[in-house]
Structures are given as C-alpha cells and as structure tokens.
Amino acid sequence: MYTTRSTLLHKLQNNDSVGYQEFYTVYRNLIYSTALKSGVPAADTDDIIQAVMLGIFNNGSFLYSKTKHGLFRTYLGGVIHHKICDYFRNCPPATEKAAPEEKARADFEEIFNAEYRSNLLELAIDELRRKVQPEVFETFELCFRRNLSDKEVAMLLNAKPNTVTIRKKRCLETLRTIITQLKTADPELDLPIL
C-alpha cells in the first residue's frame, strides 16, 4: 500500500499533473540522497533527478506497469542506477579507479535499499502525522526524534506526564500497524520491527 503508493501510481498512469507533482515530492529526496551516496557531486544531483524524472515520464506519460516491470521499488532503482551510470560515463571520476560493474551494482543496491527504507519510514511518519491528533504527533516528535524525557515533554506541551506516556503508546501502536502493512507489501525490504 505505502511501498508503491498505488493511488499515486494510478493517478500518474492517468497523466494527472497533481500525481506528477506528488511523485516528485515523495521521491525527490530518495533520488537525491541515493545519487549523493553513489558519488555524484552535490552540484550535479539536480541533473540526476531531472534525468530520472524524464526516464520515468517519457513524453509526459508514466511508463511503469506492474505486470511489465514488477515491483515498483526495483523499477525505480533500475532507472536511478542507469542514470547514475550514464552520468559517470560522461564525466568519469578523475581520482578513483572504477570498480568492476558487478561490485558497483551490488554497492548501488545496498545504498538504494537503505535510502528506500529510510524514505519509506519518513512516509510512514507522515502517515502517522495524518492519522493522529496534532498534540499526539508533537509528543511523538519530541520524545522519539528529539529524545526529550516525558517530564520535559509534559512541561513543554502543558500536559501531565501520564498523558505523554499514553500518547507515546498510541503513536507507537499506530506506527507499528503502518510498518506491518509495509512489511507485508514488500517483505524483502527488511524494515525494522518496532
């Protein structure tokens, strides 16, 4: 459900411009960080993003189809990999000796899967943001992402420490449900268990 964001892909196959924009927002960071970690200089990452977007939206239409290309993650990874290879073919790195193709491919897959996983977790957190009350999500952010204690969070949010504990529990339960769905959709991705 979240892995390929089927609604988004459906919108794209209908040449929906909102879908295109949404696709760009959702996957831009993934393409950017994968390119950066594969050795593309930061100044050229925008070129890679543009090339990937053009590769996926050839002549304005969305090319992916599940029956033809399989899992969307594999398809997207393949497109990014090809565009990065094209980039290095045109501007080879001056200092390092190029690695054998098989090893380069394995390295890329490792980088891409790690980035895909972290991008997916960010999307899961966005899903959590939509599902719970703002005060509950604030508690989650402050406790788990800022590492503040329950007392500190209670003081900041003008709430009782008990309320903070309950909100944390609720967030974890919701996030666990989301991640379970993700794992069912793509078991190979090896998402962490909460």
């Binding site: 943001r129 703002p134 005060e135 999500f137 604030e138 952010e141 402050l142 800022r146 003081m155 900041l156």
Partner: peptide
C-alpha cells in the same frame, strides 16, 4: 505540527 529545530520553552 512538528516543533522547530531549536526550542525556547
């Protein structure tokens, strides 16, 4: 409602 990076209570 993500809070800002730095928080002055």
């Amino acid at each position: 409602p993500s809070p800002p990076e730095t928080i002055n209570p």
